[in-house]
Amino acid sequence: MAYARTEGRYVSRSTWSSLSYATMQLMTTITLVALTASLTAVSMGAAEDVVAVALVAIAVIGLGLTLVRLFVTLETSGIPLLEDDRTAAT
């Protein structure tokens, strides 16, 4: 099955930008939920649960930032194995 290439790319730049934007939105939402959960845990007197919530939030933020960086790299340079001009048969 052949894929249509636009501008010599299999995946357009706007797709990577959209994925990056959606990831940032999801990270913001998860951060707000984690903040709410930690404040709720403190108000209920379960201060030791805040550590677990904080560790999960830090892990999610780290993963999200890694994904955003990957999407920006793919937006600028494309998928190296599929879109490299040196491997294209001429």
Rank of each mutant, 00 (worst) to 15 (best):
I30K: 04
T40V: 13
L19G: 05
I61P: 00
I30W: 02
D84N: 14
L65W: 09
A54Y: 02
T36D: 06
S38A: 13
S12Q: 15
S20A: 15
G8Q: 14
V50E: 00
A46W: 10
S20Y: 03
M24N: 04
T29D: 09
D49L: 08
A46F: 12
M44S: 07
A34S: 14
S14M: 11
R9E: 08
T40P: 00
V68M: 02
Y21S: 15
Y10F: 15
L26V: 06
E7N: 15
E83N: 04
D84Q: 11
S77R: 12
A46S: 10
S14T: 14
A37R: 09
V72K: 02
A47R: 09
S14E: 15
A54D: 08
T36Q: 07
L19R: 12
R69H: 05
A88W: 08
A46D: 06
L81A: 13
V11G: 03
D84Y: 05
L26Y: 08
R69Q: 06
A4T: 14
G45A: 03
L26W: 07
Y10C: 13
S18T: 15
L65G: 03
G64H: 01
V33P: 01
D84G: 10
L19C: 12
V51T: 08
Y21W: 12
D85L: 11
T73F: 05
L55W: 07
I79K: 09
V72P: 00
G78L: 03
L63T: 10
